[in-house]
């Protein structure tokens, strides 16, 4: 597919490594990764289990910090940020789409989408309006007052995408977004992600095992044993 890149790097990793410690044993999950993802890119990360793709996604999303190397996202050195700074960075710049949707079961679709806006200190009317717009973008304006349990898997994932875009983040990170969906629902989600990249110029980084999903991305990168191959 055609990506909406403009040649400016949105994500840059320079010699980034990540080591986990289990008891006294060190496990180097990412090994000196160099990577640059352009603004407006739609990239898929593939690789076998344990290859480090989810760890890489977590670093890019600011959920974790590299053990060494420099990590710059949206112009910020997030590898050097403290936890609270990274939380604020995530709220402003990153939209998350998870494999299992992760909606709050006690909140309606609209309220779930509104959730990240609670951090923006917007008036309630404004929050509501923005959540409704986001739900319209994903085609769920008729299901706004439904609870997650009243929605299908595909619809839940669309609500999750609406939640990811409601703050208008620069980057969307998606961890196996179609992993729990049937083919038809998966295609709807992939179409939606494609549209967000093309129309709304969102930079998307997606981890997937699904070759059909990866095909939709402009670039597919593969990891194996902590190395980009």
């Amino acid at each position: 597919m055609t990506q909406a890149t403009n040649g400016t790097p949105m994500i840059r990793l320079e010699k980034v490594s990540k080591t986990f410690y289990r008891d006294k044993e060190a496990l180097e999950v990412l090994k000196s990764i160099d990577l640059e993802i352009q603004e407006g890119a739609y990239e898929a990360l593939m690789g076998p289990s344990g290859s480090g793709k989810s760890t890489l996604l977590n670093l890019i999303a600011g959920l974790d910090r590299p053990t060494s190397g420099k990590l710059t996202v949206a112009g910020a050195d997030i590898g050097a940020m403290a936890e609270d700074q990274r939380a604020r960075f995530r709220a402003a710049n990153i939209g998350f789409v998870f494999q299992t949707y992760n909606l709050m079961p006690v909140l309606t679709a609209r309220e779930n989408v509104e959730l990240p806006l609670l951090l923006a200190k917007l008036p309630a009317d404004e929050r509501r309006k923005r959540a409704e717009i986001a739900l319209k973008v994903v085609g769920l304006e008729h299901r706004m007052d439904h609870l997650p349990r009243q929605l299908s898997g595909g619809q839940e994932q669309r609500v999750a995408i609406a939640r990811a875009i409601v703050t208008d983040p620069k980057i969307i990170v998606a961890d196996e977004p179609t992993g729990d969906l049937d083919r038809e629902s998966a295609n709807e989600i992939l179409n939606l992600l494609e549209r967000l990249n093309r129309e709304f110029k969102k930079t998307i980084v997606m981890v997937t095992h699904d070759p059909a999903a990866a095909e939709r991305a402009g670039t597919v990168r593969r990891l194996d044993k902590g190395n980009l191959v």
Binding site: A61, A87, F96, N102, L115, P116, L119, R163
Partner: peptide, 14 residues
Amino acid sequence: THEYGVLRAIGFMP
């Protein structure tokens, strides 16, 4: 626990 992780991921503070 998982939900708290989601809230923290989307920017909520401890």
